[in-house]
Design a protein around this nucleic acid. Structure first.
Lengths: 337, 337
DNA sequence: CTGAAAGCGCTAACAG
DNA sequence: CTGTTAGCGCTTTCAG
């Protein structure tokens, strides 16, 4: 309780505080004997270095931040776990921020994190950032890696999956099963990753022979968002034979809506999701979906970030794009002609 | 980029740094005019206070930590969200730690967090802590609130739900449906909360007329843990008519195992979970479960923690226990005599 | 190899 | 109301 500092250790071991500092940091330039004495004293006193003091002088806080929309989305939970494991392995703590896809909240977080001198920030930035925001972020002094493509300016490092290819995969699968009148349930407009998914899906669908018709609906990218959109869809647009949701959470919501509307999946309508969260195997029917490597995204993001942190100076933006794949389960069926 | 400090603001506005400090912290004792000048200078220079410097002198880092077993468990994700929202509302950051129910990893985290001078820690401590660990934690100098009952020593503040009552609720429900040969799938031995759930369940089951027989199986408290245990159970103990899992994730695993084993739920076996995570409504069949207020637990934990932090001195341990309730859906059925 | 001293950026008495 | 002066606990030159 009576906080013991490096001074106490110095007194106890009869050396100067700078010697203690060196001995403790395992640096060279300290006699074996002295070092042992210091270590013993530190142990005896139960000395615990004060990392905020250290951070102040070194300028490195050994803290990383992860700004996501909502940790309750299993996709982000998995990603966060990958990030936390990697951060810990790299000697850093991870502070978690939920932005709810709210641009203002997101910038507030960044501001606050900068004041706290975090060493780096990972974020799935809301929509495309305004030019002002972009430059503000780019020149904020700490490395940032985006979890989505970084808008027009190539100023940011990013780690993403190939969202566009994912959308195409979903479309091609549905096309091949004979679906042409389909819907795509997605998140808010200008949500980076989801926009790409939609792009890939719609373009592939249009390119089919005969061409498909796709209704795109925007809403909340959550369970309840999916539920709401699907409810409206089934009511207003009952002739749709398949729906592709921009994530699994929305697919679960759609599943729920289908159940309540008395529409069988895949009997009456086929459903395909995106993410491949663990629970996709246990819903009924098991959900066909596009798999993305969630844990690995988090991991890769921190290792890229850590590399930038250690590199000093303004880092050269890097971009890593990971692959996706179609996981076929039982929520889609072939359309009889 | 060329970090602007309070000194720069002082120079720019022609006053002393302490005046800047006062003006910025909104404290009294500074002339309106002067204050405006300072604020203007700060804005012009885009001054951002260095919170680690501030933390060093004030001794408050405005950082809270949450140590849980795994954020991928939707229960913890929801809890973490409640905690983060409350922390943010209280002006604090939240660092996330995944301990995997590993006692050593958990103590490592605590150690590291203490060095970082977090203001408080929330943790769902693994099992009962050893006496040594308990006293180490109790006297570590920062407030701790446990997310489970705190072992024998009443030295810790806790926020929990009434796990025992939850177990009883599950048992009574099953009893009333006529089940007497049941199983309970739970987590590792000595997991605080789950132990209480088991206690309540088993005792209520035994107290039934005629008394029930309950097989208790310990394993990993995860989707795959539930899956494994259920697989073994269905193979070795096929006459069981109902199973109660200590959380929903395990119930989902059990559902999966049942599906693969060709056993219908609730046709062949009834299933009841614990947590009431969002997805419990969308699995097939919708899961009957014991609801606990996850978000509120996280929220309550930080507000208790913040209260302790602000109270200074060794806080008086408080204990908050929240209620649970049975949510009846479609995974259990009445046993025909 | 070790000690002395100068800060990191900020707050908090203590004087004016 | 404002300026001076000490530090917070640690790292890091710079001299021995």
């Amino acid at each position: 309780m009576p906080t013991v500092t490096i001074k106490d250790v110095a007194r106890e071991s009869g050396v100067n505080i700078s010697t203690v500092s060196r001995a403790l940091s395992g640096a060279y330039g300290v006699h074996g004997k002295t070092r042992e004495r210091v270590l013993a004293a530190a142990a005896k006193l139960k000395y615990r270095p004060n990392r905020v003091a250290r951070a102040m002088v070194t300028g490195r806080s050994h803290t990383l931040a992860l700004i996501i929309s909502d940790i309750r989305n299993p996709f982000f939970a998995e990603l966060a776990r990958g990030a936390e494991d990697a951060a810990r392995a790299g000697g850093c703590d991870l502070v978690l921020c939920n932005s709810d896809l709210d641009a203002e909240k997101q910038m507030d977080y960044v501001q606050s994190l900068l004041e706290k001198r975090v060493d780096g920030i990972m974020m799935n930035s809301v929509a495309e950032l305004s030019a002002a925001q972009q430059s503000q972020l780019a020149s904020c002094g700490v490395p940032i890696v985006l979890l989505n493509r970084g808008g027009s300016a190539r100023a940011f490092s990013t780690v993403t999956v190939d969202n566009r290819a994912g959308g195409q995969l979903a479309a091609q699968y549905l096309i091949q099963l004979g679906h042409r009148r389909v819907a795509h349930l997605t998140g808010p407009r200008r949500h980076g990753n989801m926009t790409d998914r939609a792009l890939g899906f719609v373009s592939a669908m249009k390119a089919a022979r005969p061409a498909g018709q796709v209704t795109v609906i925007h809403g909340q990218n959550s369970f309840s968002g999916g539920y709401e959109m699907a409810r409206r869809l089934f009511r207003d647009n009952p002739r749709v034979t398949a729906v592709f949701t921009a994530n699994d959470a929305m697919a679960f919501g759609a599943l729920r809506a289908a159940m309540e509307a008395g529409r069988s999946v895949p009997g009456d309508v086929s459903l395909i999701g995106f993410d491949n969260v663990e629970l996709a195997t246990v819903v009924h029917p098991p959900l066909t979906t596009i798999h993305q490597p969630k844990y690995e995204i988090g991991q890769a993001a921190v290792s890229m970030l850590l590399r930038h942190v250690r590199a000093e100076g303004r880092p050269v933006p890097e971009r890593l794009v990971l692959g996706v794949e179609l996981i076929e389960r039982q929520s889609c069926r072939r359309l009889k002609e």
